[in-house]
Amino acid sequence: MSDLATYNFAYLDEQTKRMIRRAILKAIAIPGYQVPFASREMPMPYGWGTGGVQITASIIGPDDVLKVIDQGADDTTNAVSIRAFFAKVANVAVTTHTHDASIIQTRHRIPEKTLLEGQVLVYQVPIPEPLRFLEPRETETRTMHALEEYGLMHVKLYEDIALNGHIATTYAYPVKVAGRYVMDPSPIPKFDNPKMHLSEALQLFGAGREKRIYAIPPHTAVVSLDFEDHPFEVQTFDRPCALCGAEDVYLDEVILDDKGGRMFVCSDTDHCEERRACGCVGELGVKQEAAE
């Protein structure tokens, strides 16, 4: 039974990797279109990043440097677990530094630092179909994409405006890729949507349970859906990061006590640490050396 423990480089067998690689190439050739693939059962549960893990396992090589984030942070439990998985099965170098990574697997965030040519951002996707909550049937939504019939999505967004005065979608905000396919960017806050537009990095999206792969090539137009009289806008924070003082970044709200005390800190932990290492300090931060 000891041979149970021997797995191929990066866990997946070569035939599975080839199948996923072919799907990735077609995904890149048809930006924003969801390529069905025969997703495998992975040694972690569905919903915990099996799509992203299968993409990473299929593209990663011994020279890659991998970064894994969840909610923007390198030290959240699922990020730690996935990073440890690849360090074990692919024996690759891992990093928390955005600029050192050749592959970044993410759940729910895009790093604050602008991604560069040669980097690949791999998104974990729970529900890849942007039209799913308007129409639960795959047979229907597939036809809508085929006919480029996205009226339903606009109706939904417009109903929000009629009801609330503004669009009530705050994350997983739908985008149109290269002027053709409406795509779900995974549950990133809409704050991150503009980072996808004309990015220099290749962006790959994997949904394991739903068995779909899709992609945005570098330098590709990614436009968040909106209306002339209600243009797309991102969340703004009325204060900087309490630790590093960064503005124009996405912040997590941290509850400090049971008396309503709270602070706002960078969701991107690497970005925050790097700034603090350079001497930036927020109102509750301490000058350098404080955090290990």
């Binding site: 919903g47 915990w48 969840d70 909610q71 923007g72 959240t76 439990t77 699922n78 759940r107 729910h108 965030r109 705050t170 994350y171 997983a172 549950p187 990133i188 806050p189 809409k190 704050f191 969340q235 996405y250 912040l251 997590d252 709200e253 969701s267």
Partner: peptide, 9 residues
């Protein structure tokens, strides 16, 4: 799993 980024939004 943590969803605090989306919850924050």
């Amino acid at each position: 799993l943590p969803h605090y980024v989306d919850f924050q939004a």
